[in-house]
């Protein structure tokens, strides 16, 4: 029986889709069977970031409405032999095409076959959000060190805490610019964690390579030399239950090479 994790944020553009793609890839690299589910019906992106856009035949709406089986709609990522699959969202309908009950049933079905189901949630707190959280056992809230993003994260945490079937959400802080934090122009990590008072799952430094990689349809995790890649791999290890210490950003900056060496040593 697998575990379904919804990745959400409230605010748009903080990196939900990128996080979903990279955590999924990192978990697949760690040998787990992973299924990514894009619930952003009408504005699907996850397939583009994963570079699987042109292989889509059926989508989430087809499955939910019974036009095809889940197995048929799943797109296999050939890079990770039989470990990573994507259930794409429909581009032609909108969020109301699927109900939370249908999503619950679908996720239940996927949980039989996969170790991890990562659900990419759309921005907002309306039907799309409700669909995304319907079948989830666990939630990851992504935010950036901006006041607006933290405010929305707070709102979404409040909503997630009301869900009875979801364990207390955990936090990922994305796109941290250490020089801005140091100069006091950006919220620092302790401040955000204290404010939201939920467990911190990981922090990811701002990295231009992330954008480059998504444009090429290759998750950054596949590039072992980038800061963000290591951060995502660490988060994946924490999801798997390992305790990986959180490194402060300064250390991370100084110790990139040391960490890469350590990383290869581990592998």
């Amino acid at each position: 029986m697998g575990e379904a994790i919804v990745i959400t944020s409230g605010k748009g553009g903080v990196g939900k889709t990128t996080t979903t793609a990279n955590l999924g890839t990192a978990l697949a690299l760690a040998g787990k069977r992973v299924c990514l589910v894009d619930t952003d019906i009408g504005l699907r992106n996850l397939d583009v970031v994963m570079g699987l856009e042109n292989r889509i035949i059926y989508d989430l709406v087809d499955v939910a409405q019974g036009r095809c089986t889940v197995q048929k709609a799943l797109v296999k990522d050939k890079r990770f032999d039989d470990k990573l699959y994507l259930l794409p969202a429909a581009q032609t309908s909108d969020k109301t095409a699927v109900t939370p009950e249908q999503m619950k049933k679908l996720i239940q079905e996927l949980k039989q076959d996969y170790d991890y189901i990562l659900i990419d949630c759309p921005a907002g707190i309306e039907q799309g959000y409700r669909n995304a959280v319907a079948g989830a056992d666990e939630a990851i809230v992504v935010t950036t060190p901006e006041v607006a993003a933290v405010r929305d994260a707070d709102r979404i945490i409040g909503l997630l805490e009301k869900e009875e079937n979801i364990r207390p959400p955990r936090l990922i802080i994305n796109r941290i610019r250490s020089h801005m934090v140091k100069s006091g122009d950006m919220l620092d990590i302790d401040e955000i964690v204290m404010h939201l008072s939920i467990d911190l799952l990981g922090i990811i430094a701002d990295d231009e390579n992330v954008i480059k990689a998504s444009n090429n349809g290759e998750p950054i995790v596949l590039d072992p030399n980038s800061k963000a890649s290591i951060a995502y791999r660490n988060i994946a290890r924490r999801i798997l239950g390992e305790s990986v210490p959180l490194q402060s950003l300064e250390e991370e900056q100084k110790g990139v090479f040391a960490k890469i060496k350590k990383f290869f040593g581990v592998r």
């Binding site: 405010r151 707070d154 945490i157 409040g158 909503l159």
Partner: peptide, 10 residues
């Protein structure tokens, strides 16, 4: 007495 965090929107 209530023990909780009153979050944004609540």
């Amino acid at each position: 007495s209530v023990s909780k965090i009153v979050r944004s929107g609540q």
